[in-house]
Simulated assay, not measured.
Amino acid sequence: MDLTGRIEQLFAAHGHVPYEGARREAISALAHALQCAQLAEWANADESLVAAAFLHDVGHFLAAEAIARSDRVDDRHELLAIPFLSAGFDESVTEPVRLHVEAKRFLVRVDPHYARQLSPASLHSLALQGGAMSDDEIDRFEALPFARDAVQLRRWDDLAKQPGKPTPSLAYYLALLEDVRERPFTDSLTGIGATDLA
């Protein structure tokens, strides 16, 4: 099965399962992913960032298949997703996904109003994820190439929790993933792409 097919399978198996306990949100994981990607599109984000917005929580599905979920343990979903997604996506997709939890910790520290808008589930996970960043962590985070994209993704993530909101379908975003995967890869550090190699 190819990567897009596996992503579709993960959403079919886990996307409609509600979060329970302290992780409870008002909508399903699938509705959250669709809303997050829609918000990215409405902001005229690059297709790679729309893909990252859609895929940012896929690591929760991988964690659910690998370990027993606990309200008292951070499942590190943002890191679990990276080896899986790296099989078909470059860092313009994987890095915002990897950094979206750190972006929450960053925003809590730099925006005095940010924490007040977080859902109870997001506040709970924030405590498990280390809370607000230190000064050193802020400096390191801001120096990362995809930090800005991760912060944008984080803000859409926080807004994408509206019950009953109409969105494009799962099939629509799966097709977008295929479009992103079919683009020639360009290394953001060197500027060399697959089509530039002899």
Rank of each mutant, 00 (worst) to 15 (best):
H124W: 12
R23E: 10
A160Y: 10
L159W: 12
L30K: 05
R72Y: 05
V58F: 13
P163S: 03
P83K: 02
E65S: 13
L62H: 07
F106H: 14
D111T: 05
L118P: 01
A81N: 02
R109I: 03
F89H: 03
E41F: 00
S86T: 05
D111A: 04
I67V: 14
H56P: 11
I138P: 06
L99Q: 13
Q162K: 11
A132G: 04
D139C: 11
F84T: 09
R116M: 03
S119H: 13
Q162G: 06
L34C: 04
Y114N: 03
L85S: 07
A121S: 13
A150I: 05
E47P: 04
R140S: 15
D71G: 12
K165V: 01
Q117P: 00
G130H: 01
S122Y: 11
A132N: 01
F106V: 07
H60Q: 15
I82F: 07
E25W: 07
P145V: 04
W42D: 11
D46R: 13
Q129A: 12
G59K: 12
A63N: 07
E142C: 12
A26T: 14
L159M: 14
D74W: 10
F84A: 08
A103E: 09
L62N: 06
R76Q: 15
H113T: 06
R23Q: 10
V58P: 10
A51V: 11
R69C: 05
R109Y: 04
D136F: 13
D75N: 15
E65C: 13
Q162I: 14
L126F: 00
R155F: 10
L153K: 11
A132V: 02
R72P: 00
R105F: 08
A37V: 10
V97A: 07
L39W: 01
V108L: 01
A52H: 11
A53V: 08
A87M: 08
F89T: 03
K161C: 03
W156E: 07
H100E: 02
D135P: 10
